[in-house]
Design a protein around this nucleic acid. Structure first.
Length: 446
DNA sequence: ATACATACC
DNA sequence: AACTGGTATGTAT
């Protein structure tokens, strides 16, 4: 609320801001030794930029949100019988425990530094050298680069600050897709129903394979990893467990309650899929750092179910997760989008200039949707100012809409706001569909 | 329904 | 100088 005072000395960055600036992928493999020095360099390099200001704003918002939650917690704990709540939570835990299924052998496979290692195959010169894949922003970093703190998602100029001798390699999607297909084919020999999660990882249920081939899970996975290495020259890490919760790298989690419990006890909550940087901080604020801490604070979590999701966390605490592996339904496309960059920071104050840009993306979308026989019911306009603030405006219809350029523009005209006339850095239209066009026709027929 | 935020790779 | 891009889902109003 209050005005920011301008202190005589610039206040140092808060720990949370420094961490935020370091980016989301700080839990990756191949970590450097002194993370705090690296984070300091990153914060230093970011300082003074619009990006930095925006992160600072978001960090402050989150801090305010945390304070609100802490107050809610204190209110919620007033005058209630904590031990009673703990007792009822324990009952829920017993219920969950009684349904634990240890019968399925689930493997999570993850290619090691996939893009980087594929590039190494194509250019052995890179061996032993720190390099990143991608331009502008890195898609991945070689293990030699990770030692310096270089990570995926990091802008090139910061990576260069951390590691001046860093080599930047252009991205070659077709190359990775080719290798991905090969690797996935190997995985499918072990589970034809496997779930491919992105192009470099997947989940397999090898229960049937182990039984049929009279193999124990560890030997089976060892064999599979050996095949991958032999046929592609790439390495893959795997975690074997009774469910899909992802252990750390190469790991066999024994299939009994006690082993799972002790594994979860000290596992940082951040390692759980679904707990990102924001939820990590929210949970930290109420004293939860590890999956074991969930139990300690079960009463608070129970009282604040709405904010934190009690069931979700109790299952995490017990190390219980889905053990159903399915290939993931033939993905129906849900969104079609097109985008334009404004390369300049100058004010695009000329209404006509913006209209031209809008026309450009609308034409691109018309082309895409016409070619693929697509339509949808919602048009979304999304744009980013040079402050990195993002805005979305959407309009939904109860019928399939025309994807003609001019019709899209007519909707956009309805959507765009005056501050589009301010500095615009990036703009894109998202055009979203519930069903594809063929099905739309079927719908109309009956 | 809309406007966002968060998370994942 | 440079801060993924695409998709899904959650949440508040």
């Amino acid at each position: 609320m209050g005005q920011e005072l301008n202190p005589p000395n610039p206040s140092p960055d808060t720990a949370s801001l420094v961490k935020r600036l370091a980016g989301p992928s700080t839990t990756k493999a191949g970590l450097a030794k002194d993370q705090s020095e690296i984070n300091r360099i990153i914060a230093e390099a970011s300082k003074g930029s619009k990006f930095y200001d925006n992160e600072k704003r978001k960090d402050k918002e989150l801090t305010e949100r945390i304070n609100k939650i802490l107050k809610q917690r204190d209110d919620a704990r007033q005058g209630v019988d904590i031990s009673q709540i703990e007792k009822s939570t324990d009952h829920t835990l017993d219920q969950l425990e009684s349904h634990r299924d240890l019968s399925q052998v689930i493997v999570h496979v993850d290619m090691d530094a996939f893009y980087a290692n594929v590039e190494l195959l194509h250019n052995p010169e890179l061996k032993g050298k720190p390099f990143g894949v991608g331009a502008g922003v890195l898609s991945t970093a070689s293990y030699d680069a990770r030692k310096y703190g270089v990570r995926s998602g990091m802008p090139g100029f910061i990576a260069k600050k951390l590691c001046p001798e860093l080599i930047l390699v252009n991205i070659n999607f077709t190359r990775y897709q080719e290798m991905s297909d090969k690797v996935m084919d190997i995985f499918r020999r072990y589970d034809p129903n496997m779930l491919a999660a992105g192009c470099d990882e997947g989940y397999l249920n090898i229960t049937a394979y182990c039984e049929e081939h009279n193999l124990d899970p560890q030997a089976c996975v060892q064999e599979m990893r050996a095949f991958v290495h032999k046929e592609t020259n790439l390495t893959v890490s795997a975690g074997i467990a009774p469910n899909k919760n992802k252990p750390n790298g190469q790991f066999y989690l024994p299939f009994d309650r006690e082993s799972i419990k002790s594994f979860m006890q000290d596992l940082p909550i951040r390692r759980i899929p679904g707990v990102g940087r924001v939820n990590e901080r929210l949970l930290d604020a109420i004293g939860i750092k590890t999956c074991g801490d969930i139990y300690t604070h079960r009463a608070t979590l129970s009282l604040m179910d709405k904010q934190f999701g009690l069931q979700f966390l109790l299952r995490i605490h017990l190390g219980i997760a889905s053990n159903v592996v399915e290939p993931g339904k033939r993905e129906e496309r849900k969104i079609a989008s097109a985008k334009v960059h404004f390369r300049t920071f100058s004010t695009l104050s000329d209404r006509q200039q913006i209209l031209n840009k809008l026309e450009e993306v609308a034409a691109e979308l018309e082309d895409d949707t016409e070619r693929n026989g697509w339509t949808g019911k919602t048009v979304t306009l999304k744009y980013k100012l040079n402050t990195y603030q993002v805005y979305t405006r959407a309009k939904s219809f109860d019928r399939w809409i025309s994807t003609k350029k001019d019709d899209l523009l007519a909707v956009c005209h309805h959507l765009w706001q005056y501050h589009l006339l301010l500095l615009v850095f990036l703009i894109f239209i998202i055009y979203r569909s519930a069903r594809n066009f063929c099905q739309a026709i079927l719908c109309q027929l009956g």
